[in-house]
């Protein structure tokens, strides 16, 4: 079963005989992608993600009964598949925010150091290709795999959602799901880059994997705790001015936004819950004049634009650091 599946997926990437001339970069991407697909690691990740999809789908559907009774046109029932939960398991977006990093780390933690320990890195570098092709190809191949995986899972959610609820998604919902998947890919891409950076820095794959996991654990467990401590010690003792309170609240929120998962949940929640109108604090007086209703897609996108840009920027910065590290490194055969 697994073998057949592997072959099927492999054939998607392998064309009918390679083309006569292929740019070296795409030859490398193709080889890296094939390596991922043929690995047990990919199978395990895919299995894990399928499990998550099924679990979050079932928890969403059981909580959906009430929602369907409401007006389906304005309540975006379909998107609730991704965000709703009956309390037994987290919804899909929480799963992705929590476990997406694992995918990124798993696909990148041994990118460079495994080439080094296998002794293939010096052989690669002796070929007439620019050095950065190696990390670029690794990144592109892994990102393609991630995109492929996320799109499959997303479509699976949509498809089984249609089957179980009987409600077709509106075009806007489809777009919102699409943008959600896109942001998920970028988010996982950040972690992929981090893992690749560690794989350049650390010669041992285990050290590199562990560092990636440490950063992930830090942000998912300890980061909010640390922020809470900071908040407790720096919060103004007496609120004299509403503006001061708002700006303090903004400061705390910006601290939280150092964590990529915070950016990711803000961005995806806004996209999948169209009734979210703002991500910052609002006063009662501002809220009281607002008419409750969903934002159009364009406005939701505008709202998460900074978050998206930050995620992309984080990916670029980490990639830049890896690039510099890799270019400066002297490559000997196996050290």
């Amino acid at each position: 079963m697994v073998v057949v599946l592997r072959e099927k997926i492999g054939n998607l990437f392998r064309r009918q005989g390679p083309p006569e001339t292929q740019h070296p970069f795409w030859a490398m991407v193709q080889k890296e992608a094939m390596d991922h697909i043929n690995s047990w690691r990919f199978m395990i990740l895919l299995g894990l993600m399928l499990l998550i999809t099924v679990a979050s789908l079932s928890t969403a559907i059981s909580s959906l009964q009430g929602a369907i009774a409401e007006d389906t046109a304005t309540s975006f029932v379909f998107l609730k598949l991704f965000t709703a939960t009956d309390g037994s398991l987290p919804p899909f977006i929480t799963f992705i925010s929590l476990l997406g990093p694992i995918i990124g780390i798993a696909l990148g933690f041994d990118a460079i150091n495994s080439e080094r320990s296998r002794g293939t890195l010096s052989r690669l570098l002796a070929q007439p290709i620019p050095r950065d092709y190696i990390i670029n190809a690794k990144f592109v191949a892994a990102l393609l795999i991630i995109a492929f995986m996320m799109m499959i899972l997303g479509l699976l959610m949509v498809g089984s959602g249609i089957l179980t609820t009987g409600i077709p998604p509106t075009p806007e919902e489809v777009w919102r799901v699409f943008f959600f998947l896109l942001i998920s890919i970028v988010y996982i891409g950040v972690w992929l880059n981090l893992a690749i950076m560690f794989s350049i820095k650390f010669k041992q794959a285990a050290t590199s994997a562990l560092s990636g996991l440490a950063v992930w654990l830090f942000f998912s467990l300890f980061f909010t705790m640390i922020i809470n401590i900071i908040v407790e010690s720096t919060a103004p003792a007496q609120v004299t001015d509403i503006n001061e309170l708002i700006s303090y609240q903004g400061f705390v929120q910006n601290l939280l936004r150092i964590s990529p998962s915070q950016l990711f949940s803000e961005a995806t929640t806004t996209l999948l819950v169209p009734t979210i109108r703002t991500l910052g604090p609002i006063t009662m007086e501002q809220a009281s004049y607002a008419i409750a209703g969903p934002l159009p897609l364009g406005q939701s996108l505008l709202l998460v634009w900074p978050q998206l840009i930050c995620l992309v920027a984080a990916a670029f910065i980490i990639f830049g650091i890896s690039y510099v590290l890799f270019m400066k490194q002297e490559v000997r055969s196996r050290s």
Binding site: D35, Q127, S333
Partner: peptide, 17 residues
């Protein structure tokens, strides 16, 4: 690149995929 096109290098402890 020009030099590497003309030179074949077999490292100490060569590795393959």
């Amino acid at each position: 690149f020009l030099a590497k096109e003309k030179v074949g290098y077999l490292p100490d402890e060569v590795g393959f995929y």
